[in-house]
């Protein structure tokens, strides 16, 4: 399973980085979203992969049977903050597109 998740993260990172280096701001926003999936998965995987071990405890004594809740808590906040930054970025993108008249990331079209 580890191999699969690693490859999945790799695919997301690769697509995200490719988009990050593109010139149009919409490409950037998609790229950042893909990157945030990858990073969230990566952080989550740092707690190791475990099936049927959700950190919902039945009694306090048997702590060993559950997966690590800390990365999950981190990623949960990351997802929500990720949404906020995507929204902010989108609006900045739109405002900049209005002001600069182009959706190029530099705010101007490159010289031909």
């Amino acid at each position: 399973m580890e191999l699969l998740i690693a490859l999945a993260i790799g695919a997301l990172i690769g697509s995200g980085v490719w988009l990050l280096l593109r010139p149009r701001s919409f490409q950037l926003i998609i790229g950042l979203s893909l990157l945030s999936y990858a990073v969230n998965l990566f952080i989550f995987a740092m707690g190791r992969l475990a099936v049927d071990a959700a950190p919902v405890v039945k009694a306090a004594s048997e702590a060993a049977h559950y997966t690590d809740p800390v990365p999950q808590a981190l990623v949960l906040t990351a997802i929500v903050i990720g949404f906020a930054t995507t929204a902010l970025f989108l609006v900045v993108l739109l405002a900049n597109r209005g002001l600069a008249g182009t959706d190029h990331v530099d705010g101007r079209e490159p010289p031909p």
Binding site: I9, G10, I13, W18, F42
Partner: peptide, 19 residues
């Protein structure tokens, strides 16, 4: 493309090793 592929492969390796 090479850079993106390199980054993807690198992070995949890193993730695999850690997991």
């Amino acid at each position: 493309f090479a850079l993106a592929a390199g980054a993807g492969i690198g992070v995949a390796m890193l993730a695999y090793l850690t997991m």
